[in-house]
Amino acid sequence: MSETQPEAVTLVVRHQVRPNHVPGYETWLRRIIATANQCPGHLGVDVMRSWRPDVAQFTCVLRFTSLEQLQNWIRSEQRRQLVAEVVPLLCDGDQLEIAQGKDFWFVPETVQAPPPRWKQSCITFLVILPLSLLMPLLWQPLFQLVPWLGGYLLSNALITLSIVLLVVYLLMPMATRAFGVWLRSHDHERNDPESGYSR
């Protein structure tokens, strides 16, 4: 004997996050996902990220067994408080869309995957190689002036720290902008199983 089961209901939440607030948003996102997981009727959540020069977009797809249970989550005090916390990090507020059935069972076409890993590796190599050659030379005069700084462990720690700070805060953002078109030209690779995206 079989009974007709109601189709799942989907909540799509889109947040545009200011780039300098992405780490804080990621922390908040983990909290709200954990809270949603405890709600009756919750079937799971998928998070998709896309990046532009001035904004990071997060698309969260939550599934519930019924419209009533989904609305209970939307109206819940826990969600209201969490959304109030995150609004200052967003460019365009809390954007919600409800879809019946499996309209968002797969990734929406409009969401862009991050650049493939081989492209990210190429840019990282191009940024780090010159620094790995240049930084020891730049530090050498100080190591000669202050011999105890030139020890194996301390000198390598200082050189590595310099490279990491320059890469993360200065050179990698510049390289990402400079190679932006090339990094984004990977639509034909979106069927790559490692990317986590499929059409």
Rank of each mutant, 00 (worst) to 15 (best):
Ala175Trp: 02
Glu26Trp: 04
Ile128Arg: 13
Phe106Lys: 14
Leu133Phe: 13
Val164Glu: 07
Asp192Ile: 03
Leu134Val: 11
Gln57Cys: 04
Phe64Gln: 01
Arg79His: 02
Ser121Tyr: 02
Ala36Glu: 03
Arg18Val: 03
Ala113Lys: 05
Tyr197Phe: 15
Lys119Gly: 04
Val47Thr: 05
Leu131Met: 15
Glu77Gln: 10
Arg79Cys: 00
Glu194Ile: 10
Val168Phe: 06
Val83His: 01
Val167Asp: 10
Ser195Tyr: 01
Gln112Lys: 09
Leu166Cys: 02
Pro115His: 07
Gln38Glu: 13
Ala178Trp: 10
Cys60Trp: 07
Pro108Gly: 11
Ser155Asn: 15
Val127Phe: 06
Ile163Thr: 11
Ser121Met: 09
Leu70Ala: 00
Trp28Val: 01
Pro40Gly: 12
Asp103Ile: 15
Cys39Asn: 14
Trp148Phe: 10
Val47Arg: 03
Arg80Leu: 12
Pro173Ser: 11
Arg117Asn: 08
Arg52Leu: 11
Gln5Val: 08
Trp28Gly: 01
Pro114Gln: 12
Gln71Met: 05
Glu194Ser: 12
Leu90Thr: 01
Met135Gly: 06
Pro173Lys: 07
Ile128Pro: 08
Leu166Ala: 05
Arg31Phe: 09
Gln140Val: 11
Gly180Ile: 00
Lys102Tyr: 07
Cys122Met: 12
Leu170Glu: 08
Gln144Thr: 04
Gln71Trp: 04
Arg177Asp: 13
Leu70Phe: 00
Val83Gly: 02
Ala84Leu: 00
Val61Ala: 01
Leu96Tyr: 11
Pro114His: 08
Arg79Gly: 01
Ile98Pro: 05
Leu149Glu: 10
Ile74Phe: 01
Pro6Ile: 02
Ala175Asp: 03
Gly44Gln: 03
Val146Trp: 14
Gln144Gly: 04
Arg75Asn: 04
Gly150Ser: 10
Gly44Arg: 02
Leu165Cys: 15
Ala175Glu: 03
Thr35Phe: 00
